[in-house]
Design a protein around this nucleic acid. Sequence first.
DNA 1: GCGACAG
DNA 2: ATCTTGTCGC
Length: 222
Amino acid sequence: MRVQRLHPWPATAEEAEAIQDRLRPRVELSGPTSFGLVAGLDVHYHGAGGGDDALTAAVAVLDPGTLAVAEQVVVRGKAAFPYVPGLFAFRELPALVEALERLTVTPDLLVCDGYGLAHPRGFGLACHLGVLTGLPALGVGKTPFVGTHEPPGPERGDWTPITHGGAVVGRALRTRPGVKPVYVSQGHRVSLDTVTAEVLRLTPRYRLPEPIRHADHLARLS
DNA sequence: GCGACAG
DNA sequence: ATCTTGTCGC
């Protein structure tokens, strides 16, 4: 598939933040409620501890019905930015974009490892990938980031809102009974209800969505 | 002002 | 993210 380059690569944190602020208005908070091919994206790092910058990016495209892998791409690269909370996307974006460009199919939804709207400037990795591709995108975080929330109930499907700056920016969602929740948010062209329903549909067995699990294993074992 | 802070 | 053993459980 084709991915658009909407900005030059930032050299400083200030430039990176300016890019996020400029692209933020392009995010659309509604869109399709069901999807065909679903792509999971993940990056695995491997290097010398502190100065680590070698990485492997993986994309796994799953069939919507069977959740079986329809296509997969692995790309080796380097971290394109230092790790700064809030600017995390700039580390992985080039490798992930290259992986997406090597797909022979176009996914209908991107399931990203990280946050979307639930971000200091409302423009996390899921928003960024969504805007660059024009595709619906959502973010799944494994630990809390911005905002506050109450613990969701113990059953699968239980959730509580994540509030930040007086607005609901995501949900803490229980995908497995009695297991730590995941933190979901909108990336692009999806409602929060659709994000919630889709993440539940993609977690029939484990805490994390199948597309992300497949991408994670791919990146790790490559 | 200080600490905390997706992966 | 990664550095790492054992341990509990399906």
